[in-house]
Amino acid sequence: MEATPLLAAERIDKRFERRLDFAGRLAARLGAALGNETVHALDGVSLAVMRGEVLGVVGESGCGKSTLGRILAGIMPASGGRILWQGADRDRLTGTERRSVKLAVQMVFQDPASSLNPRMRVADIIGEAPLVHGQVTRAELGDYIDTILRDVGLDPAMKQRYPHQFSGGQRQRIGIARALAVRPQCIIADEAVAALDVSIRAQIINLFDELRQKRDLTYLFISHDLGIVRFIADRVVVMYLGRVVESAPTSALFAAPNHPYTIALLAGAPRLEDRKRAFAAIEGEIPSPLNPPRGCHFHPRCPHVMARCREEAPRLSEIAPGRLSACHLNQA
């Protein structure tokens, strides 16, 4: 029916286990209430990123969006499921193919302070990987770095400086330059503008857009900020406690959210148009991922909760062309 996605996740699971050490096992043997703790960070997450699109992933803390980004970027392995690159299982690739697929997906991080190695000069931060992987020769490297720095709006004359000599916005540009240096096709931006001031944030968002057109990039844009996702994304995936609850084209999602969680999320966000509004919030806390509720993860906070929601997790199913939602209300 449609083209093969550039990058796809198929029923990805991720469990973080904290095993007891020897002392812990001894204490447990003696009757202490200790056990191996398992956090189910991702629970059967599937999504597909089409070539050239910007896919937004939104959700609150503990929803697993960052973990998903890291697994898609190949930084951490999944506990189950498959990652497909242009339809091929990425874990089965070997040799140069494996490397080129790995380099094709790069990541831009949240924290401009810790995402750059403080002991390396900007030229080394950007130039190390393309040189090591033989994408450029040592002779070409200088010009190559200059071009990339100009592309991200930095003066190449500053390439011998260290990260601490730059402002937050400039450091984020360096982080983008580092990702671009290995000529990726897809960039995963994990809260890449969250730590920046409003006026600087707009510059970086514009830069992302400019680079996408210029270099034919595909983005997975992870953010908790609905305003940014609405502006930049073509399609949005909403996550809650390790599961995808809704996925839809941006305009459709913001015009008519389907899942009760998405509705609450959109209603709770403060808006510039508000004047002396009465803030009304959804009740309850975000449950701990250590011990998520049975059935639908959102049921303890949901205003439409039914008996079925407490027992059975709703499946993500199509409610309109291109729109998926995981709520029992749609089946009623």
Binding site: G74, I75, Q106, M107, S115, E128, H133, A179, V182
Partner: peptide, 13 residues
Amino acid sequence: KEYVDAALCLDLS
């Protein structure tokens, strides 16, 4: 720290 994640993503040894 994230710079180590970045290095992993760049497939450095």
